[in-house]
């Protein structure tokens, strides 16, 4: 009995498109990567459950308050003690940013051991200059 001759098919995984796929992934990661630049003061954020995510970083300015009572407004450089802003100048600094971007949200990144009195002083400063959209930065609470 004679069988029809099978066509010889070499079974190889096509790897020609591999580079394309990986470059696609590469582009995705390049676009979504944000290098952590603005570290600000080293603070330990409090935990909370009912937290909201801020969708855009463009409209966010951070104010760091650590447990020593140091305040720093949107410091991009790593912390070396030069960026400390006295309480009286917080308003002026934020006002500058607020006029450039009226949709600004102020992110208060205060240390969980910080004195609330100081945080309240900062909030009053923000109120006087009209920066009313505030977000208290927290970590998600782990059960």
């Amino acid at each position: 009995m004679k069988f029809a001759r099978k066509s010889k098919v070499t079974n190889a995984i096509p790897t020609a498109s591999m580079a394309d796929i990986s470059f696609l992934l590469l582009v995705f990661f390049m676009v979504s990567t944000v290098f952590v630049r603005n570290r600000g003061l080293p603070v330990e954020l409090p935990d909370a459950e009912k937290i909201e995510k801020l969708e855009s970083r463009r409209h966010v300015t951070s104010i760091w308050i650590n447990d020593q009572g140091d305040i720093c407004v949107d410091c991009k450089d790593s912390y070396d003690g030069r960026n400390i802003v006295p309480l009286a100048q917080v308003g002026a600094k934020v006002h500058q940013k607020l006029t450039a971007n009226p949709r600004l949200i102020i992110m208060v990144k205060a240390d969980s051991a910080a004195d609330f009195g100081l945080v309240s002083d900062v909030l009053q400063e923000l109120r006087t200059i009209g920066a009313l959209r505030v977000n208290f930065a927290t970590d998600r609470e782990r059960p």
């Binding site: 590469l26 990661f29 944000v34 954020l45 966010v60 009313l132 977000n135 930065a137």
Partner: peptide, 20 residues
């Protein structure tokens, strides 16, 4: 890029302060 990517979004409790 996988290793260096940080996907952490800013998150926290939002509050709208009353104006002066």
């Amino acid at each position: 890029f996988l290793v260096t990517t940080t996907m952490n979004q800013d998150k926290g409790l939002s509050l709208h302060l009353p104006g002066m």
